[in-house]
Design a protein around this nucleic acid. Structure first.
Lengths: 122, 122
DNA sequence: CTAACATACAACCATATGGTTGTACATGGA
DNA sequence: TCCATGTACAACCATATGGTTGTATGTTAG
């Protein structure tokens, strides 16, 4: 999991992942579009490969790089688990609140001061 | 986004995030459970804080650390976007296949070797 | 007031990371 | 066959990261 998130923590690698999700790419294809050396792109692909986010299949002298969505799904599963933990917490707080105020049905907002709506960095 | 995924790329930080999702924790609470110095845990919290995955609220001499699920949601949104790119690709391949074989309804498997089945996040 | 506690922060160190250049090797086309 | 192409890999460098210890500061308990 460390390797997956670390691989995703770089804009170039995320772009490579995006491109290989859309269609297979050779290393040269990928390298052509970044302002860095071929070897640097090669290293980025290697990081993604070690994280199992992409795989290379040899095709003649080229290597076709394609994404592995099942590994992305692993990361999604972890984030989903976090989200569930959060929801469970809210549910507990709601239950506690309902217990202390049995007459009121269920307050529309949670008692926690978290401002969930404001997303300042889009 | 770099900071978010980088922060998630460490087991200790993921555990801190998990714990602060479940309930607020002081730095000392957190530090007590890891085999490293207080300062090291403090740094991990700082990394999570810079990524906006947690926030600290001063409470007397303590700092209550709580998770910010809206930032987790940002990471989820990115992974979802990747998943959608993948699905769109499959759809295009399916359409292409259907075009070349108009008589066959729609083949159960796509011509690509990718194992699509494991998609735990619908 | 003073002592203990919770936190902040700086300085330092070892290692990992992200980039470079250079070299080697296999493959495909002329 | 010969040469350009596509890739692999090593060596090197600057900086970032993850850990340490030590010191300073604010806060609460006695």
């Amino acid at each position: 999991m460390d390797r997956i998130f670390r691989a995703l923590a770089d804009a170039t690698r995320r772009d490579i992942l995006r491109r290989t999700l859309v269609a297979e790419q050779t290393i040269s294809d990928l390298a052509a579009d970044y302002a860095m050396s071929f070897a640097a792109v090669q290293k980025h692909v290697a990081v993604l490969e070690r994280a199992d986010l992409v795989a290379k299949s040899p095709a003649g002298r080229e290597r076709r790089v394609h994404a592995r969505p099942e590994t992305i799904a692993k990361a999604q599963a972890l984030l989903d688990a976090y989200e569930h933990l959060w929801r469970a917490r809210i549910d507990r707080l709601d239950a506690l609140f309902a217990e202390e105020h049995p007459t009121s049905p269920s307050p529309p907002t949670d008692p926690n001061p978290q401002p969930t709506p404001s997303q300042p960095t889009p």
